[in-house]
């Protein structure tokens, strides 16, 4: 019997998800024994045409990481969808939009201006040359993929069967998913292949959490030497544990928490949370300035809340494109600008 065929592809990502595959260590040899890797641009020499030449549904499973930022990524996502029976959104960026999704606080024009224009102090570009989708040179035409105004998650572009969350996904979840797919023991379509409880539920620092938390002052992690035995929220440091799915570490405790860092939310929301930012606002508003709340003036409250410097960036660090509001409203985001070829 021929081996099942597996493809890996990266879109707008940092390469960490590719590392996460390599982090399977010796287990990757077991995977290679069981499957044929037919496409993995980061690690092996395949061409897009190799995929184009495949029959529809020829690939058993395609793991796609990264958000969708350019035409090329959208085209490859569509191609892999056609050629694969199962598509897995692998990692925070394809699952939720991820760090590249934070670009949705700007649009193409403002991003190009800060990268190639006067907005970038280290760029010397007196002629204001910016990338074009088509450039004519004596030898012919050079092309670049078009750069979208808005970053999207994978399921905003193609139909996705399963999700493996995390920045990057922990190897134990990846291995579990591969085993489930190869043995045909698949959960319901659309399932997120990770536990459903929140990180707070599983956190060992819970024992240190007081009955009632009241934050008098918000502190950034860089401003404190945090006690590794103490709940971050009780110390006034914003931790995304209350609104984030657990599972980043097999042992239960969060990976970042074990490194004495607050949870940043890369696993995305548990099933009952619709919008991470909204939920986090509700959670924080209940504990910030709780003690003596009846004696606080409007100005006192504003002063306290203003200590949260960048709420949208902090709460939607990994999920802006899939949040309820999806992106910043710009003066005219849909307009065709001079960078659109």
């Amino acid at each position: 019997m021929p081996k099942p065929k597996v493809a890996f592809y990266w879109c707008a990502s940092c390469g960490g998800c590719e590392e996460a595959i390599v982090d399977l260590n010796e287990d990757i040899l077991k995977v290679v024994e069981l499957v044929d890797i037919v496409f993995w641009p980061c690690a092996m020499d395949f061409k897009y045409d190799d995929v184009r030449k495949m029959k529809d549904n020829e690939i058993t499973v395609a793991f796609i990481n990264g958000a969708i930022r350019t035409d090329e990524q959208e085209e490859m996502a569509n191609l892999l969808r056609k050629k694969a029976q199962i598509v897995v959104a692998f990692g925070s960026c394809s699952h939720l939009g991820g760090i590249p999704g934070l670009a949705n606080f700007w649009d193409r024009e403002t991003i190009f201006e800060s990268s190639y224009g006067k907005g970038c102090p280290s760029v010397d570009n007196p002629d204001g040359i910016v990338p074009q989708t088509v450039s004519k040179v004596p030898e012919g035409e050079l092309t670049l993929p078009a750069f979208h105004n808005t970053v999207k998650s994978l399921d905003q572009v193609i139909d996705v069967d399963y999700y493996i969350p995390g920045c990057a996904p922990p190897p134990y979840l990846t291995m579990k998913a591969i085993v489930a797919i190869l043995s045909g023991e698949l959960p319901e379509k659309g399932a997120i292949l990770a536990p459903e409880k929140t990180l707070c539920d599983e956190c060992s620092l819970n024992d240190s959490k007081p009955e009632k938390i009241s934050i008098k002052e918000i502190k950034r992690i860089s401003e404190v030497i945090s006690d590794p035995e103490k709940c971050f929220l009780a110390e006034g440091v914003i931790c995304m544990g209350p609104v984030t799915r657990s599972g980043c570490s097999e042992e239960g405790d969060g990976k970042c928490i074990s490194a004495n860092m607050p949870c940043r939310g890369c696993f995305g929301p548990p099933p009952e949370v619709k919008d991470v930012g909204g939920k986090m606002i509700s959670a924080l508003a209940s504990i910030v300035g709780l003690e003596g709340e009846e004696n606080m003036s409007e100005e006192d409250v504003e002063k306290l809340i203003n200590q949260i410097v960048d709420p949208a960036g902090y709460f939607y660090r990994f999920s802006l494109p899939t949040s309820l509001l999806r992106r910043k409203r710009m003066s005219n985001p849909a307009k065709e600008d001079r960078y659109n070829g």
């Binding site: 606002i281 504003e302 809340i305 960048d310 709420p311 992106r327 910043k328 409203r329």
Partner: peptide, 11 residues
């Protein structure tokens, strides 16, 4: 108040 501050970042 926190929501207002956040919405401003969304334009």
């Amino acid at each position: 108040i926190l929501l207002q501050k956040m919405l401003e970042q969304f334009g």
